[in-house]
Structures are given as C-alpha cells and as structure tokens.
C-alpha cells in the first residue's frame, strides 16, 4: 500500500490528529487497506458500477417551492450566532 500518507489524508478529512493517533491510526489503516486490497486481483472489465441498492435511479422532485424549516429552531442549533446569522471566524482580511 505504497503512498498512504496519513498527514495528507487527515488534512483532506479536516481532522487534527495527536501524535499518538497519527501512529496508531497510521498502523491500523495500513492493515485495513492491505485487507481491502483483496479486491485488487478481480477481473472487473466491462462491469457497471452499482451505486445504490436498487436500479430505479433517483428521480427529481417537482421544482415547486415548499416551506423550509423554522428559522429560529435552525439558528438556535448554531454554536454561535449574531441575530439571524451564524457567527464564524473572519475569512476575509
């Protein structure tokens, strides 16, 4: 499993790891990836991918407006808010 880079993957996953987690998860994930590599030898030429448990696809709904969730109940779940907005750290200098 050449190329498994725990730091790259952790950054892509937006997960800060401790040194201990870095070592432990790195070791465990190497074992897990080696295990799932069992599918590497199968001949899969010409096969379609199965994305869902059924073949019926996912039809679109009619594009008609319906009421959304109550704003106050939704905003009350935000860890930090200012009036009707969710508060975040500054992203533009």
């Amino acid at each position: 499993m050449a190329g498994f880079d725990i730091d790259r993957v952790a950054m892509l996953a937006r997960l800060e790891l401790t040194d201990e987690e870095r070592t432990r998860f790195g070791r465990q994930l190497e074992t897990i990836v080696a295990y799932v590599d069992r599918i590497a030898g199968l001949d899969l030429d010409g096969l379609d991918a199965t994305l869902h448990g059924h073949d019926a696809g996912a039809p679109f709904r009619e594009d008609t407006p319906v009421p959304g969730l109550p704003l106050e109940a939704v905003l009350n779940n935000a860890p930090a808010r200012i009036e009707d907005e969710i508060r975040m750290p500054r992203v533009v200098e």
Partner: peptide, 20 residues
C-alpha cells in the same frame, strides 16, 4: 479542532479510510 475533539476513534478511522 472541532472534528478532532468531537469525533471518537472509530469515526476518525473510518473517515480517514473513506477519505483515502
């Protein structure tokens, strides 16, 4: 930091594997 503190070990392992 939020994800590091809020998620347990098994969740982190699977998120890392899925991301990979």
């Amino acid at each position: 930091k939020t994800r590091a503190q809020g998620m347990g070990a098994e969740v982190k392992r699977r998120v890392l594997l899925g991301t990979f």
